[in-house]
Write a protein that binds this DNA or RNA. Structure first.
Lengths: 181, 181
DNA sequence: GTTGACATGTAAAAAGTTACATGATTGT
DNA sequence: ACAATCATGTAACTTTTTACATGTCAAC
């Protein structure tokens, strides 16, 4: 069975919080779902047009003062219904690609110093991720009661922290092996 | 900067172990790199042809007894050199998509029982992954000394175990939150 | 005047998946 | 006869990325 395209649902989900333009959606994504889902303008604008045609969203031309005009999209009842139905469906299997694992798998073909360098690079990256997520967590915990969706956002941040912690431990584990070779 | 296409390197890496046909490569992938990198026939066959044209691999027509004939590809010196050069390059940033996080992020839009179901589904999946990887780890440790690339394979399996363990802990953490709502 | 944020969009290319076609051989 | 495995391949499609074009407005 072909995998369902989730682009529509990402956009609908973001619009469920408030009406936005394509540009807003892209900007909002940066500070919300970008660490586990990202879309390019090449996906956002055509999908918005397509969903408007299908009645999942409606468009309003907005004349901004001090800013260029924009097209603001509103989630319709139909769109909200479709989003909810999708949210209830089971999670489809996904496979993630890890360049670090690919390189390490063939690690015997190059001098070990390169493998060590790769692990150091990744460890640094993972730590930066944790720092960012931890900061976000702290901010969020302060306002956890202000909105009922904050707790759900927190759960996704916790995921980011947990797997990056695990990845750091793995780096240390692997580094021990590599250095003792 | 555009991301480098790694399809070539996956194939070259597998061929560095032994010459194989397109079919063999796909089969071998299943028991080696598939948990962090997968290719379809639609990628394998055209890429093999392309790499042969570029002299990265060479082809030999093999007449099999008791099996259909096949085209076996050999890693060339040039191909091996290109593979090694790539293996030495730093890891590029990658972003992974997590449907579970996308659904959980918008979890306030549906009854909580669905979110709980999603977490249960994922926890089960993660546990199955661990069981598989752990079994593989056990097998591998028995023959760790027989080949110098086994230790690198082990490292990739350890990665799989570590992140799935972390994901299970996250499931339990999140489940506590969800059940107390 | 030029930089930077705001804003919309598309065309082309690249990458990847899916579905299909074809056929050999082995075992039941 | 039929199913399973082995084997090669491609065409169509979908998805995603990248690069480009266009322009507004505010601030320096």
């Amino acid at each position: 069975m072909p995998k369902t395209n989730k682009t529509k649902y990402v956009i609908l989900g973001l619009l469920s919080d408030e009406p936005m333009s394509g540009y807003d959606i892209k900007e909002r994504m940066k500070i919300s779902v970008s660490h586990f889902w990202n879309l390019s303008y090449g996906q956002i604008y055509p999908t918005l047009r397509h969903m408007e045609k299908d009645g999942w969203v409606s468009k309003k031309d907005i004349i901004n003062e001090g800013k260029p005009n924009s097209k603001v999209y509103y989630l319709s009842e139909k769109g909200k219904h479709r989003l909810r139905e999708w949210l209830k469906q089971p999670i489809e299997e996904e496979n993630h690609r890890y360049e670090i694992l690919l390189k390490l798998y063939f690690g015997n073909l190059i001098p070990n110093e390169y493998n060590i360098e790769h692990i150091q690079q990744m460890r640094k990256q993972y730590q930066e991720n944790i720092d960012l997520f931890t900061d976000f967590e702290r901010q969020l915990r302060k306002v956890l009661h202000l909105s009922e969706n904050h707790i759900y956002i927190l759960m996704t941040i916790l995921f980011g922290i947990r797997i990056n912690e695990a990845q750091i431990r793995w780096c240390d584990e692997v580094m021990n092996i590599l250095k003792s070779m």
